[in-house]
Amino acid sequence: MNLELLREERPLVHHMTNEVVMNFTANGLLAFGGSPVMAKEPEEVEDIASVAGALVLNIGTVRKEDIETMIKAGQAANKAGVPVLLDPVGAGATSFRKNAVQRIVDEVDVAVVKGNAGEIAALADIPLNVKGVDADESGDAEEIASRAAGKLQTLVVVTGETDVISDGQERLTSSHGTPLLGSITGAGCLLGSLMAACMSVEKDHKKAALFALEFYNRAAERAAKKVGGPGTFIPHLLDELGKADG
């Protein structure tokens, strides 16, 4: 994974994402080296998705009408050879969200599905306690990732104390980060954005996902050493994302 190339190209990442965290996501991606666009108007999503470096579909604040538009954008991205990352926020919380994700993966060729243990477990029909978008972390993340990858036939990333990447055959793990990431809104959403940016320049999506995970979590570790709490953590995290060392 070539970060220098990414920052030279500044890939356009098309987001159809969680409205709660759009600003944070955009600022984080800009600091990292990408170029964000937030667009979900049905009349333009095909045009933008087809010229972007990557497409992020995040169901954090999804409405019924958004699902059709996400599928429309995803199919346009597929035709143009643009990688699609799906973030199934809260998929284990309601049947509406789970069904929305199922429709997207049925109708769009998704390159990567990234979520916490509860979200990914729900997609693999593995019982796990879920509260809103948070999950019980007691499940076996490696098993969850492998089973979900096999069922969805795509690369799966399970985030948690230990992050797991699986294509159903091979598994990669990473154990960096800080508890402060769980104290701010949108930490996972921003991670998905960075992964998508990496996928735009690195065709091996396992390598792209692992690089984004480790760069992001190590930047968070450095930021955490400089702050007293979540309020000051965010600006320091943005600063660290702009540095060359991950």
Rank of each mutant, 00 (worst) to 15 (best):
L181S: 09
A39E: 04
A39I: 13
G192R: 05
G74Y: 10
V158H: 07
E19N: 04
V108R: 02
V51M: 06
V82N: 07
G33A: 10
L29H: 01
N116T: 04
E214A: 10
A117K: 02
V113F: 07
D163L: 04
Q169A: 15
I48Q: 05
I126E: 11
K72S: 14
Q169R: 11
V51Y: 09
Y216P: 01
G34M: 01
Q102R: 14
G182Y: 13
V84K: 04
D106C: 02
V82A: 11
M70R: 02
L6V: 10
P88D: 06
F215R: 10
P11R: 01
D239M: 01
V108L: 06
K225Q: 05
T25H: 04
L57I: 09
F96T: 13
L86G: 02
T94L: 11
E43D: 08
T185Y: 05
G192Y: 06
N23F: 00
Q102K: 15
P36I: 15
E137W: 00
P36V: 15
M22L: 03
C189Y: 09
N27Y: 10
A149M: 07
T159L: 10
A39S: 12
T173I: 14
V51F: 10
G168V: 13
D87I: 08
L213C: 11
R7L: 02
L172W: 11
D245A: 00
V62P: 13
S146H: 12
V133W: 01
E214H: 07
M16D: 02
R218Y: 05
V156L: 08
I71R: 07
A148K: 04
S146P: 00
K64G: 00
E161C: 09
V113P: 00
